[in-house]
Amino acid sequence: MSELLQFTFSGLTVGAVYALVALGFTIIYNASGVVNFAQGEFVMLGGMITVFAHAAGAPLPAAAALAVVATAAIGILLNKLAIERARGASVVTLIIITIGASIFLRGAAQLGFDKQLHRFPSFSGDDPIAIAGATILPQSLWMLFGAAVVFAALYLFFTRSLTGKAVLATANNKLAAQLVGIDTDFVMALSFGLSAAIGALAGVLATPITLTSYDAGTALALKGFAAAMLGGMGNPFGALVGGLLVGLIEATTAGYLSSDYKDAAAFVVILAVLFAMPQGLFGKSAQERV
């Protein structure tokens, strides 16, 4: 029993990172229909910038804040320099541009930082907290807390705020959104900035446990994407649940079977779900009118 609880704890910890990555996907997808494959690089940048700013002498909170702001700026630049330039390009073209951007960011991080694995100290020490025979690290609680706060903020943003609704309207029909006076360039810049900031936050929260390096983003983007698909692309609640589910499946497979199969198990479950429900667990089915 305590074994299962232990696996649950570690599953939720890693799941929180996947959920944050998936939430990042959600925003850009909601604004443009584009799946941003550079999302994993935002997580990597969040971790790496914190590491190097901290090493340069900045206190940890300041280094973390700098990482989030700098990554958001990089996200906005990515939109300005690569996405906005391709005005009128199809969604598939834009997705390919984000793949290119992810390779570029990885290369830039390799040159600008280095190729080592890095970490920085946990926020509240490394003494495990014992709960019913299992243990959880304080940093894991930080990660879960971060995912919950970001989810709640995004949920309210999309359902209640006018700006959030403008983002959804832009995704639904960009030209119509412009006609009613929505500044769609601003919406795109906002969604890239927000998404990059959330990615960086995930990197800041996770690095003390998972460590980071210039190429840490690829695997995270893949898992985060899978989580977003599982939950239903575009739905913040789906992203949260999808992320935690993928984390739990991985942890229990690693615990009860073998850690060799943990990635395979996660993807098999996702494939099975998508065969039965192509729109994901909480996604709305899309029907295009011709």
């Binding site: 309207a169 639904n172 029909n173 119509a176 009613v180 929505i182 709305k284 009118r289």
Partner: peptide
């Protein structure tokens, strides 16, 4: 150029955006 995946009412409400 209509927001096809929104309700009819939401479409018109979107027109009040500004």
């Amino acid at each position: 150029q209509v927001f096809l995946r929104m309700s009819v009412l939401d479409n018109v409400m979107a027109g009040r955006h500004l």
